[in-house]
Design a protein around this nucleic acid. Sequence first.
DNA 1: CCAGGCCATGTAAAGCCTTACATTACTGTT
DNA 2: AACAGTAATGTAAGGCTTTACATGGCCTGG
Lengths: 335, 335
Amino acid sequence: MNIKDIAKKAGVSTATVSRALNNPEKVKKDTLEKVMQVVDDNRYSLNPFARSLASSGRTNNVVLVVPNSVNPFFSQLASGAESLFDEYGYYMHVYNIGRHLRDPGRVTEILEEVANEGFFDGLILSGISYPGENSPLRMAVLNKPVVLIEPNPDSRMDCVLVDERTGIWLAFEHLKKKGYTRLGLIHGGKNLDLTTRKMHYIRELQEEFSLETRPEWTLETSYDSVGLTYNLMNRYLTGGPELPDVFFAFNDLLAITAARALLDHGHRIPQDVALLGSDDIQLARYFNPALTTIKTPTEDLGKTAARILLNKMTNPTLPPQRIFLPPTLIVRESC
Amino acid sequence: MNIKDIAKKAGVSTATVSRALNNPEKVKKDTLEKVMQVVDDNRYSLNPFARSLASSGRTNNVVLVVPNSVNPFFSQLASGAESLFDEYGYYMHVYNIGRHLRDPGRVTEILEEVANEGFFDGLILSGISYPGENSPLRMAVLNKPVVLIEPNPDSRMDCVLVDERTGIWLAFEHLKKKGYTRLGLIHGGKNLDLTTRKMHYIRELQEEFSLETRPEWTLETSYDSVGLTYNLMNRYLTGGPELPDVFFAFNDLLAITAARALLDHGHRIPQDVALLGSDDIQLARYFNPALTTIKTPTEDLGKTAARILLNKMTNPTLPPQRIFLPPTLIVRESC
DNA sequence: CCAGGCCATGTAAAGCCTTACATTACTGTT
DNA sequence: AACAGTAATGTAAGGCTTTACATGGCCTGG
């Protein structure tokens, strides 16, 4: 069933059917009704591929790629971006690359395929380290506007990032003021971008605030699985190890699960061990104890990326920009 | 830049270029290299619309429509579905209909447009009440396989649902055993499907378990905004009202925010007021106090829906099925 | 040395729509 | 009644790829 069939049945030309469906106001009322009748009777709808092909390919879709859709951080980011896209008549879809994150080759491959499928006008890549300048991805994707959120800032692309270093600086200042000196670290995987970046800044800054770290106080768990995180924390604590003054968890999800394990082992927070999170996900505030955390302006991150992409889509020749958003420290109960 | 240009530059036919790009193994090595060189030099990629048009429209994309992507419930559901799609080589994108949920007309419109864009092979609709038999959506969507999660079960479509009634039954049994008789309710909006459904079952069952409800114990907040929920709870509690024995929150997010408000007003949980949630989102277990909740087999819901859709996509003539998944009661600290 | 078969490649039709331009049908004016 | 001008509709080209079938080259075995 295609537009020709409909045209024949309605006794009009294909052009008229096309107009009836796309610009009803351009068709006389009688004709319109006649056509629509046939369309409805046959439950017909235009073939989207032919449509986009013929009309040179606008889709009104954009996609947001996230590394872990279960982390509320990315939901919030998505929510921010979406609100803007929605306002401008775009449909935002999110694609989660999660389970392949440990395999950079596969990530590139997937992105490339998604890009090739290409049923969208623009792309936002969030929290994913971007394969270098000449990667096939880059080429595949380059025909469409792309903006990056929060990766390494050294590429030549549009990106919006948060200044993690000052986030950590702020947090450390707070720790020092409160008199903490022994710093535990909880991250979710040694080889992941997020981890290495934060680690880097920590090393850079710890001396300035006289914070001591130790291998036995730095815990490797998982960004994907809170279950795993809890178990690892649990096992660690069962040994009754000597604890640091404060644990810095690399995201709030980690912080919350760690908190629970700490609590379950009878450690009070913050009296016995303090806890510092990162991100300020929505629930951070409602958790008990409420989380002290380095707030990433999550919604803003999404909105800003969306704004850039929106510009880029209407005007593809715009030069790339790089926007830094400032983190803040939210002091609550846990630290 | 199209396949013809590439073909010309490489001195081969379009068919060869097409093969080089889609089935490299069908092309002699020399030729392949020559073609790929030109492709790379020109950063060329096949036009996805023409591609899908020519190959009669397979895209390897599926979309999952959710009503609220910020609720971890749906993230988990998505995660379940995705794991299966991934296994079978499909890319799952999620579309959040969130901010339009209060306007059913708009919801239909959006779904219809998304369906018309139609760059996917199948669709899962979750937690959204489905516009009746003859709605335009139905027609728009009907060309592709659709499966429904968790809506009203009376349509003629594939759907997977959880038996909410027995969930509530189990919970009420527990409440009775524990000696609670005064039941508070926290929902997120009077006119929403989820609310009316649960309300219905509650009314049906409360007598059997001698649970008293009262207008002043039933609180209307918001499923979308935990901030709003907290504020409303806060305001409510500030009056120092007489509290029920136990609050049943219609989802865990509500439960957690309510808990926080309760705690902030000095009510101990469960000693002063107990709290019962619904869904069993991941964090429910880690919250302090750990949430007693009616567990929806969330991942399974997603997986099952995915499985049905997968079948339906390969064999569109399959008759519609309806699968019920059982909820269970997870007793933890809050009740 | 030739028939038969396979491999690599080419040719061209098919897939379905949009839209510039051409044509026809009307309306209202003079 | 004729004409101008506008509104409605039709014609057909163009958008880009896939793929069935055709072709030609080369190899193998008899």
